[in-house]
Design a protein around this nucleic acid. Sequence first.
DNA 1: ACCTGAACACCGTTCAAGT
DNA 2: ACCTGAACACCGTTCAAGT
Lengths: 188, 188
Amino acid sequence: MAAALRLLDDHGLADLSMRRVAGELGLQPSALYHHVSNKQQLLGLVSDALLERAFHPGPATTWDTRLVAVAAALRDALLAFRDGAELVASTIAFGLGGRAPYDALVSALDGSDVSAGQRPTAARTVLHYVLGQTLQEQTRLQADSLGALPTGVSGPAVEESDFLDGLAMVVDGVRVRAAAGSRVDEGA
Amino acid sequence: MAAALRLLDDHGLADLSMRRVAGELGLQPSALYHHVSNKQQLLGLVSDALLERAFHPGPATTWDTRLVAVAAALRDALLAFRDGAELVASTIAFGLGGRAPYDALVSALDGSDVSAGQRPTAARTVLHYVLGQTLQEQTRLQADSLGALPTGVSGPAVEESDFLDGLAMVVDGVRVRAAAGSRVDEGA
DNA sequence: ACCTGAACACCGTTCAAGT
DNA sequence: ACCTGAACACCGTTCAAGT
């Protein structure tokens, strides 16, 4: 995992091949198949290793600040490694890793008025937002670092506020459900 | 494009290689490089061709029903081709195609109280939700079609209601912004 | 303008064989 | 249990050469 993460961060996801990982370890490619049954599974393990090292949401008191904190921590983790968003998004989509972020989002809703039935929906929605937005961000950042000069010396991190704006919208959507839940309670 | 879409739908994205597309046309692989500068560009064109054939949102009167209609039409388009969600999501993420859905979402907000500055954010948020959710849905559908027996004869399209539930949450988030916009107007 | 033929530098995966 | 060596069936891309 250490070798794979080093390879990922130094050369990108495209170079994270079975042959290169094996080479990094001084092994033949076929040796990896004694520890993993195919490349997708290895990528799932690398994705989990990345999250273990970089995904550390801090504590927060209310459910909505917790949701924002988990989302921001996930974005930070994905941006901490080259192609991190692409790797984690794809392993999550194919269900071979990256369950920690989803679980953290569901836990963030503990003590909220969002009904138990709606929490998976809320968690998935926030997760899709963070993955999609961060993937696009990271792709653009890497395109810029290869592309033309920084024509506008464009200033720092225009993207972070974009991220937080969209995130606030999603959280507002969840809040509407929380309000509906508490109204039902009050009505009962 | 017709050959590529046939290949995609019959054999999946993994088999949509330059060599297979060329073979389908009775050409050498190198011949494709006279029409396209690399594989990513070709995938962008295939993605746009897919959307042209399958993405047809119907008309709707209010901005929020329009948003839902565009989102549902996009989901339908992605599900209409094998690996459609994966193809379109990746070309959109890398900025090589699939601009039509984003544009349609922005247009859907015409006449809403969402401010001009917030419309791109709202459109991106809905777009990320649809792509992420549909990718996960399609992946699971295809895993099921290969995997074990339908143990529960599980009933039709549990996923569609999941999709609509999450979509409603996102649209609620946008609605909060629309309400904020109209309140500003009333206040002035 | 459009295509062929051949080559370069890679892939993931399998499998017999070794220790 | 863990690994090597060799092979199979592929990749994307380049480039001289043809018409």
